[in-house]
Amino acid sequence: MDDELAALLIEAHRNIGFLEGLVEYAPNKEAFAELMLLKECTYSHMIDYDGPDLKEILTIRGTDKGNITPIMNLEAAYSAAANLEIHAPDLSQICGIALNGESENTPIDVRAHQTFWLGAKTNLKGYNPTAPDAVLPALADISAYLYNDHNTDPLIKAALVHYQFEMIHPFERYNGIVGRILVPMVLRDVIGDARQLICLSECLYHNKNEYFDLLRSTQYSGGYIRWIKFFVNAVGQAAKRSAEQLIQYEQAIAEAEDRLIHIGNLPKSVYSVLEHLKRFPITTVSSAAKNTGLSFNSVSKAMSMMLEHDIVIQSGNDIRNRIWIHKSIGQT
């Protein structure tokens, strides 16, 4: 522990604590958490694979036009992981859900042997992980480390567990994705409800070169401290970004509701459509009608009214295929 790492830990915990305070009183935290999970899954997938960005995912999801099954599978995996443990059977189940979806429920086999990590070094006292030439004992070593170490800061433990899992590389596919799902699993007992709002993968994606470089180089240099500092800073910055976005999100909703209240004598359908926009900030009339149970005409009139009062913007001119975007949420 040096001064730089101590400062990074203090800042990260301060940002997490601030986010936790916001979450406790945020009136629309469930809808925001849903969007943040979608964001986390999208960026985690983008780190390792080519695919649509968040704006495209929001558009496909809100218009029912396109296939985002890989992202939906990741959402299911993150959700399932909240109630699972960090050991081989549960990790195999998480990987299976991430790859094939929850309905398949087919665990992915763990490799028996692999040669991904050779000549590994460590310069940390109390952390000398098993070299993963035999994968199952190496995964068991992670569980033992988490169970036996009660003194290390949880953020440092999360950094080491993520690194160790990536070095073990127990599956044929999705090791990076499952490794990132591990992070909220390690932190769930110390962060609480704010955990699901921290989009770590966005920060890792925008620093992907350094992220990959540190994962590759640490095993040869033994320079865990550089990796830990990078990881702790990434978590802290992600928590700070999430807090800023939650404030912006709640302000946008409050401003929209205030404008509607001052109009007066509005049909309930307008407020139903606004509720839909909280979770689907990019949508079509048809999709909104399907999700709210309202008629096409009722939703169309509600959108036109919100367009008139600068709550939504319109994309496209074809009447039945126009895309509606919540001005303050769908464009951020």
Rank of each mutant, 00 (worst) to 15 (best):
T283H: 07
G119M: 04
S44H: 11
D189S: 12
R173P: 02
I156T: 15
E34R: 15
L38C: 03
R180I: 01
F212E: 13
P184K: 04
K240D: 12
I253N: 04
N100K: 08
I261G: 10
Y145Q: 03
L307D: 13
Q314N: 11
D310P: 10
E34K: 13
I94Q: 03
G330S: 10
Y43K: 08
E40W: 09
P170A: 06
S217V: 06
A26R: 02
L266Q: 11
C203I: 14
V270I: 15
L200N: 01
Q196D: 09
R173W: 03
D109I: 05
K157H: 04
M303D: 07
L58N: 00
E172D: 14
R259T: 13
P154N: 09
I329K: 00
L182Q: 01
G51H: 09
T218H: 08
D133S: 11
Q219T: 14
V270K: 07
N83C: 07
E11R: 12
A76P: 00
Y220A: 13
E210H: 08
D90L: 03
G176K: 06
L8Y: 11
D189W: 00
S298V: 08
G236I: 07
F165L: 06
P137Y: 00
K121G: 04
T122W: 04
A159P: 02
D133Y: 15
K278M: 14
L5Y: 06
G264E: 11
K208G: 13
G126P: 05
F165C: 03
N15T: 02
R226E: 15
K229S: 10
A77I: 06
V285R: 14
N123K: 15
T59Y: 11
E102G: 15
W117G: 10
N233H: 08
A88R: 02
M306P: 10
E255N: 06
E172N: 10
L204C: 09
G264K: 06
L182A: 08
A302G: 09
K65H: 07
Q164I: 00
S328D: 06
F165Y: 10
N73H: 09
W227F: 15
T292K: 01
A254I: 06
Q196R: 15
L200I: 11
G179C: 06
A289T: 06
F296A: 07
I86N: 00
N265T: 10
G179H: 01
F280M: 13
Q196G: 05
N209T: 14
G264T: 09
A33W: 02
E104D: 10
P70D: 14
V186R: 05
Y174I: 00
D141R: 00
V270Y: 14
R322Y: 04
R241A: 05
R279W: 03
